[in-house]
Amino acid sequence: MPRRLAVVALGSVLRAIFGYYFLVLVVRIVGRRPGKQLTPFEFVLIFFLGGLMLTGIVANEMSLANAVCQIIAISVAHYALVWIRMRSSRVSRFLDGTPLILMEGGHWRSRTMRKMRISYSDVMAMGRDQGLKTFDEMGTVTLERNGEMSILPAEDQNQ
């Protein structure tokens, strides 16, 4: 009985290793972008593929084959969606969003900030990361498509 348990455990380990390498290959083929530039639908893709592979790893060999087929199908669907996104600005705006101005010329866009659930202290924390000490030093604050905030110092806007 212990020998059968070792064979089962080894099979599970080998499926996990295969799953890892397969996902790395698929993500590499599907496309790459820096981590901070991942769009929401790319995060969904990564987690979804991981969930599909997990099913194949913890179950039997038939589940592994199904997981591989599902991952290939989802990867092709993702590639098609990226292709459509590159050709349609409307689809791109829907999937990636658009940059939103939170502050411009010393005036806050409070409605936008409430809608995005961003507080003034969130903006100030980002400003401190960039070496700014007060709100007066900030010219334009933009919430970018990837969720990061861009802060242009007030002096840079006069140029």
Rank of each mutant, 00 (worst) to 15 (best):
V44I: 13
L45P: 04
F48R: 09
F48M: 11
G50K: 04
G50A: 02
G51Q: 00
L52M: 06
T55H: 04
T55S: 06
G56F: 07
I57A: 03
A59M: 07
A59R: 11
N60T: 09
N60F: 07
N60I: 07
E61P: 05
E61Y: 06
M62A: 06
M62H: 05
M62K: 08
N66F: 09
N66R: 10
A67V: 03
V68A: 04
Q70I: 09
I71S: 02
I72S: 02
I72M: 04
A73Y: 08
I74L: 05
I74R: 02
V76E: 01
H78M: 00
H78Y: 06
H78S: 02
Y79P: 10
A80S: 03
L81S: 03
V82M: 13
W83S: 11
W83V: 11
I84S: 14
I84F: 13
R85I: 14
R85Q: 14
M86P: 11
M86Q: 15
R87H: 03
S89R: 14
R90E: 05
S92C: 12
S92W: 10
S92N: 11
R93C: 08
F94M: 08
L95D: 12
D96A: 02
G97H: 11
T98G: 15
T98Y: 12
P99W: 08
P99S: 12
L100C: 12
L100W: 07
I101L: 13
L102S: 10
M103R: 14
E104L: 11
E104T: 11
E104F: 13
G106M: 04
G106C: 04
H107F: 14
W108I: 15
R109H: 15
R109F: 15
S110N: 15
S110T: 15
S110Q: 15
